[in-house]
C-alpha cells in the first residue's frame, strides 16, 4: 500500500528530551489506519496525544513513582525517602531495593487487621447496598416511563449535593442526643440512648447512604432492558412469581449486580472520609492508615507500600470492572 512519507519530526527545533518524546510519539504507527485517518495522521495523532500524554503523566507515572518509593527507606529529609540508586562511582550504580516496608506490613498486626477490616466493611456495605438498591431499581424499571424519570431524578439529586455534607448529616441523626435516639425515646421503644456513632453500624450506614446511587443506576439500566413478557411467559408456563423472579429476572440481572457491586466495593475498601467522621478510632480502615502513615508519621515509603498492597488487593475487581465497562460501551454501539 502506498504510504505518504512521514514528515520529519522537527527534532532540531525542539531538541533534547522533548525531541525524543516527539520522535516516540509520531513514530509509533498504528497497524491499520482507515483512509480517513491515514490522510490526517498528524491531526489525528495530536488528538490522541493530548489525553494520552495527560493520563500517562498524571495517572500512570504517579503509580510507578509510588511503586518505586515503596521500595526505598525512610529518611529525615525532604523528600523523606532515600533514592533507590546512587552513583557510587562513575561506572557503578548502587541499587538498594528495600523489601522492608512490605515485610513490615505483613508482620505488624495493625496493617493486616486494617486490610481485613476494610474488606469486611466494604463487603458488608456492598451487600446491604444491593439489598436496598435492588427493589428500588426494580420498582423504577417497572413504573411508567414518565414517573421513571422522576424517580431517577430523585435518586441522582442527592449525588449532586456534597458527599461530605451528606455524611455529615448522619452525625446529627446518629449522635447519642441525635434525632434517631430522641424519636425512639419519645415513642418509648428505648429508655437509654443507643450508641451508634463511632460504631461499625455507623460506617455501614454512611457507605450505603453515599454509594446507593452507584448501585441503583447500573441495576436500573440492566433491569430496564428486560423484556417483561418473559415473566408473563413464565407465569403462563406455571411458575409462581417468586420462582420466575429467581429463575428469570435474577439471572438476567447478574451483569447489573456485578457492575453495581464493584462500583461500591472497590472505592469503599479505600474509603477515608466516612470512617473518619462516623467510625471508631479503635479499628482503622486502610485508607485512614495510609493517610496517617503519610501525614502523621511522615513515612512515605510505608504509605506507598500500603497503597501498592491495596492496589494489588483490588486488582482483580478493578479488572473485572474494566471488562464490564468495555462490554457495556460496545453494547451501546
Amino acid at each position: 500500500m502506498a504510504r505518504r512519507p512521514l514528515p520529519q519530526p522537527p527534532v532540531r527545533l525542539v531538541g533534547g528530551r522533548l525531541g525524543l518524546w516527539w520522535q516516540l510519539f509520531f513514530r509509533f504507527g498504528p497497524p491499520r489506519w482507515t483512509l480517513y485517518m491515514r490522510h490526517n495522521w498528524a491531526g489525528k495523532r495530536l488528538v490522541i496525544a493530548v489525553p494520552y500524554v495527560w493520563l500517562l503523566l498524571f495517572f500512570l507515572i504517579p503509580f510507578i513513582i509510588v511503586f518505586k518509593i515503596s521500595f526505598s527507606e525512610v529518611r529525615l529529609a525532604m523528600p523523606p525517602y532515600a533514592p533507590l540508586w546512587e552513583w557510587v562511582s562513575e561506572r557503578a550504580v548502587d541499587v538498594r531495593l528495600n523489601f522492608g516496608n512490605y515485610l513490615f506490613l505483613l508482620t505488624d498486626d495493625l496493617y493486616v487487621s486494617a486490610y481485613l477490616y476494610s474488606l469486611k466493611v466494604a463487603a458488608i456495605s456492598t451487600l446491604f447496598c444491593l439489598l436496598i438498591a435492588y427493589p428500588m431499581a426494580y420498582g423504577i424499571a417497572r413504573s411508567s416511563p414518565a414517573t421513571r424519570n422522576l424517580y431517577l431524578m430523585l435518586i441522582i439529586l442527592p449525588f449532586w449535593t456534597s458527599f461530605l455534607l451528606r455524611v455529615y448529616a448522619w452525625i446529627g441523626l446518629l449522635q447519642n442526643n441525635g434525632v434517631i435516639n430522641k424519636v425512639l425515646m419519645a415513642i418509648g421503644i428505648i429508655d437509654e440512648p443507643i450508641t451508634m456513632m463511632q460504631t461499625d453500624f455507623a460506617v455501614f450506614i454512611g457507605i450505603v447512604y453515599s454509594y446507593l446511587p452507584f448501585m441503583i443506576l447500573p441495576l436500573y439500566s440492566n433491569l430496564e432492558k428486560h423484556d417483561f413478557t418473559l415473566l408473563e411467559a413464565a407465569a403462563d408456563l406455571g411458575a409462581s412469581p417468586i420462582k420466575s423472579f429467581l429463575r428469570i429476572t435474577l439471572p438476567l440481572s447478574v451483569p447489573g449486580i456485578v457492575a453495581g457491586s464493584l462500583l461500591v466495593f472497590i472505592p469503599a475498601v479505600g474509603e477515608y472520609v466516612i470512617p473518619s467522621l462516623l467510625g471508631s478510632t479503635d479499628q482503622l480502615m486502610i485508607g485512614r492508615v495510609l493517610s496517617d502513615e503519610f501525614f502523621a508519621n511522615r513515612d512515605w515509603p510505608v504509605a506507598s507500600a500500603v497503597a501498592i498492597a491495596m492496589l494489588l488487593l483490588l486488582m482483580v475487581p478493578i479488572m473485572i470492572f474494566q471488562r464490564y465497562q468495555a462490554r457495556e460501551l460496545a453494547g451501546a454501539k
Binding site: M1, W33, T34, L35, Y36, R38
Partner: peptide, 8 residues
C-alpha cells in the same frame, strides 16, 4: 467512497 483503503 474512500472510507476504507484497499489492502491491495
Amino acid at each position: 467512497a474512500g472510507f476504507e483503503a484497499p489492502t491491495s
